[in-house]
Nucleic acid binder design. Structure first.
Lengths: 253, 253
DNA sequence: GGCCGTCATTGATCGAGGTCAATGGCTCCC
DNA sequence: GGGAGCCATTGACCTCGATCAATGACGGCC
């Protein structure tokens, strides 16, 4: 699942660890998006127990410190979780897509802020509803599991990777079905191992996600371009001209 | 709950976010440690469903990449989760204490290695047992929730904090009941706001946890000592001479 | 079309933290 | 007691990424 949520299709299941590609429960939650498939009764039931909400891109969904009244599940779109230090330094903690759950804490207040990266549709469940519904709990736990693994990877990135490795890792996350365990490689008979990805974050946001400054991110992009791994036109769209080579630049493989 | 697991007592419950202080289910899982309290039937039942194991300090409990057969709950002691990059760079992801659960993944292999920091007692449940037992699942979810919040905080540390702030934050985590939300301050009538903490990690381990080098950690310790926030004798024991001041040096408050 | 605001790129310089290396202190063991 | 093996500390130097600053590219709007 890439950030722009283009995969409302149900194909391309695989075992990659890529953090945004983890809608174990495929995001078919609304008749408009089911493409003729019917949802299970369970899914219908779950949808009915929460409020459906929509947000525009860059809209704040919830704020760090607010009372944690609801648990939210993304149906469509992408959001970012972030935290601020008192002096204004920001860290973007995680990027979430369809199927992911956010708004979980141990305290009674949200521990992160959540902002829409793209237009977002979600279901908001009251905390009490989640606490009494086993199916919802299972869903929450699954998403938590996946987010946990993603955070483990991200800790390695933040603690131990160079600027270029960070940016390469970030870009690889935007490529569906590549870079994870069991990555199939370019595929048979593919002449050029290239792919276009949409980058739905500004340089500043990427920087805050990767623990860098926007200038360093920009320089890393330029560097990768100079080395022939990247080509790009519009600055929110990148063509990765050699996915395998980019993958090797992540430091993870 | 501090790392050395000294708090088998059941007092000192509070609302701090401190990551190692989260044994919501107090670690009274063995007659020797219950100090006369009787466990609930549920706890007895859960204990019976897993294998009890013990490990010595620095012993490897499980390895990144191994098939994820069991889910483990710490009864006593402290462990560290870590990941390695292929070239040997290591990131210590998280420190866990009594009540915490580890060995959860989305894939069929463990995504982190786990090593004992102190002598450890734990219960290992087969994955299938956890999947079919609601009480165990609830426990797992609770621990996941807490670990998630801890990882969010740690991402801020790794992405945005200076070396001194990182070390100060690390040290504050070792102080029970301080530094979290609702921190009571030094307490009434306390003459000197000081406390002794045991540091169960080597400088190299602290460095790998904080995304620094061991030299930088050492220099940060010296710096804090020079500034009068720290006094220490044996290098695995530190006296924090002004907890509030150290807390302010974390950058978080 | 021309102006303005936002975001990205690029260059010059600086500094925090990494790297390399020497020294010190503690513990264990013979 | 003395030596070996860790681990920690400290110093000298260097490098990567941050900071400061100028310029460029794009899009929206009058």
């Amino acid at each position: 699942m890439t950030l722009d949520a283009r995969s409302t299709d149900d194909t391309a299941r695989d075992v990659r660890v890529s953090d945004l590609d983890r809608d174990r429960t495929p995001p078919k939650h609304d008749a408009r998006w089911t493409l003729g498939f019917s949802r299970t009764d369970a899914a219908e039931d779950l949808d009915a127990r929460g409020r459906h909400l929509t947000y525009g891109a860059r809209e704040t969904i919830l704020d760090e410190g607010d009372p944690a009244r609801t648990v939210n599940r993304i149906l469509e779109g992408a959001v970012m979780l972030s935290k601020l230090l008192p002096d204004g330094r920001r860290q973007i903690i995680e990027l979430l897509g369809p199927g992911d759950v956010f708004g979980i804490t141990t305290t009674r207040a949200y521990d992160v802020s959540v902002e829409a990266l793209t237009p977002v549709r979600l279901v908001a469940y009251e905390r009490s509803v989640v606490e009494t519904n086993p199916a919802l709990q299972a869903m929450v736990t699954n998403s938590l599991r996946a987010q946990m693994c993603a955070l483990h990877d991200h800790a390695v990135l933040l603690g131990r990777k160079s600027a270029i490795e960070r940016v390469a890792t970030f870009l690889m996350r935007l490529v569906p079905n590549r870079g994870g365990e069991g990555c199939a490689g370019p595929g048979r008979g593919v002449a050029r191992d290239q792919v276009n990805v949409k980058v739905p974050l500004t340089r500043q946001e990427i920087a805050d996600y990767l623990g860098l400054t926007l200038e360093t991110v920009s320089r890393a992009f330029s560097h990768l371009k100079r080395d022939g791994l990247l080509v790009y036109g519009r600055h929110d769209e990148v063509m990765i001209s050699n996915v395998c080579k980019l993958c090797r630049a992540t430091g993870s493989h």
